[in-house]
Amino acid sequence: MKKSSMLGLLVLVIRRDLVLAMRRRADMLTTLIFFVMVVSLFPLGVGPEMDMLRKMAAGVLWVAALLSSMLSLGRLFSADYLDGTLEQMMLAPQSLSVLVLGKMVAHWMVSGLPLVLMAPVLGLQFDMSAQALGVLIAGLLLGTPVLSMVGAIGAALTLGLRGGGVLLSLLVLPLCIPVLIFGTGAVEASTAGLGVASHLSLLGALLVLALAFTPWVTAQALRISME
């Protein structure tokens, strides 16, 4: 491969991971079904009063998105780790950070994007207004990639460990709290009639920060886990 084609490499990794994901569609669907289930459990748990549900809708959807993205993180590197592909990737002359970024993007497209697309339907179950739904989707679009990227650090650190899944959540969930806060804050601000720009800008800032640093940190974590 030509040296200049960093972008080409990125596209290649994304395409490869997407093809792999499409061959095993069940994995993708289970995450989505989990998301739908968790969201549907809340009205059963707290009661069907629409006023209350409308108030907590954004929080419920965000927490459910957070949890379901944790579920799929374990698979981010494990298959490649088990069949040796990951080792080859680390030996490759190309930058590991770019490879990792490709895997993060693919992971988001497989596990984050479906949640974003599903969210409006679930939001309607909670009687959210169209405007609040729009803000929710915008927040999820900005926030779920951050969850995938921060989660990737945890996935790399816990690679091949026993009890990896629970441990991964333990490590990553506290780090994702800001995303949750700004994501739900945006929806609340919009229903309160305040501007949502500040919340969404902060989410955007988190996304830029994560884009800049997490691929590199994840690459370092992978090197630690693989040595």
Partner: peptide
């Protein structure tokens, strides 16, 4: 090494978490 990386990521995150909260 793994927990060191986690601690560093955590300490970068602490101010972000603090202000967001």
């Amino acid at each position: 090494r793994a927990s060191a990386l986690l601690a560093i990521v955590g300490s970068v995150n602490v101010p972000i978490i603090y202000f967001s909260v």
